[in-house]
Amino acid sequence: MTTDSAATESSAPTVRHEPALARYTLRIDGETAGFADYEVDGTEVLFTHVEVDPARRGQRLASILVEQALDDVRVRTDLTVVPVCPYVVSWIELHAEYQDLLTRGR
């Protein structure tokens, strides 16, 4: 069986930072499938809300979105992450390698 690599690549989720909207957007096939809203307050970035299209739930998309957003914060800033959204709180609790983001800069 062969797979069409172009189709596979285009259907892979991508996360884009949209600073003008204070949001990370997860897109699949050119359509928004989810987003993570945040607010910057001084030296902190507060992740306030994560949402995934109900039709696409159960595909680990929220996890992909949060992971890539936190990776971007780690690389691009020195801000301390403050998880306000319950999903982000539990995600960071389950991923010890991201817990340093909660205390850096303090």
Rank of each mutant, 00 (worst) to 15 (best):
E51I: 12
A7L: 15
I28P: 12
V82F: 00
L46T: 15
R106H: 05
D72M: 10
H49Y: 10
R23M: 08
L79Y: 11
E44Q: 13
A6S: 09
A62K: 11
Y98T: 11
S11G: 12
D78Y: 04
R27I: 00
G105C: 09
P83Y: 07
F47G: 14
R76D: 02
R74C: 02
E67W: 03
T43D: 12
W91R: 00
H49T: 10
L26F: 02
A69I: 11
T8K: 12
A62P: 14
T25E: 11
W91S: 00
T43P: 11
W91I: 00
A69Q: 14
L26M: 05
Y98V: 07
L94V: 08
V50P: 10
G58D: 11
P19E: 03
D53H: 04
H95T: 02
D78T: 13
W91K: 01
A33S: 05
E39W: 11
Q59N: 10
R16N: 14
D71W: 03
V88M: 08
A96E: 04
L102K: 03
A20Q: 06
E97H: 13
R27V: 07
V81K: 05
Y38L: 01
G105E: 03
A69N: 14
T3I: 12
V15Y: 08
T25F: 01
P13K: 13
A55D: 05
Y87M: 08
T77F: 02
T2K: 07
V40K: 12
V88D: 09
R60V: 02
L101F: 00
S11W: 12
F35T: 11
A33N: 01
D29V: 12
G105L: 04
Y24F: 15
V52H: 03
E18I: 13
Q59M: 07
D78F: 07
D71K: 13
A36S: 12
F35Y: 15
I92K: 10
H49L: 05
E31T: 11
I92Q: 04
S63Q: 11
G42T: 01
R57N: 09
E31W: 01
Q59F: 05
T32Q: 09
D71R: 12
E9K: 09
Q59H: 14
L65F: 06
D41A: 10
Q59S: 03
D71C: 05
L79W: 09
R27E: 04
R76L: 00
T77H: 02
R23S: 08
H49G: 07
S63H: 02
Y87L: 06
G105I: 03
V66W: 12
E51F: 09
T48V: 13
V52N: 02
V66A: 09
T3P: 00
D53T: 05
L101I: 00
G30Q: 14
Y24S: 10
G34T: 03
V81A: 03
D100G: 14
L26Y: 05
E9Q: 09
E9S: 08
E51M: 15
L46H: 15
S11F: 11
Y87E: 06
P54S: 02
D100P: 09
D4W: 10
G58S: 10
L101M: 01
E67N: 04
E39F: 14
S10F: 13
L65D: 01
L102W: 01
G34D: 01
R74E: 06
M1Q: 08
V73T: 04
W91A: 01
S10H: 14
V15I: 14
T14S: 08
L94Y: 07
V45W: 06
G34C: 01
D29I: 14
V88K: 15
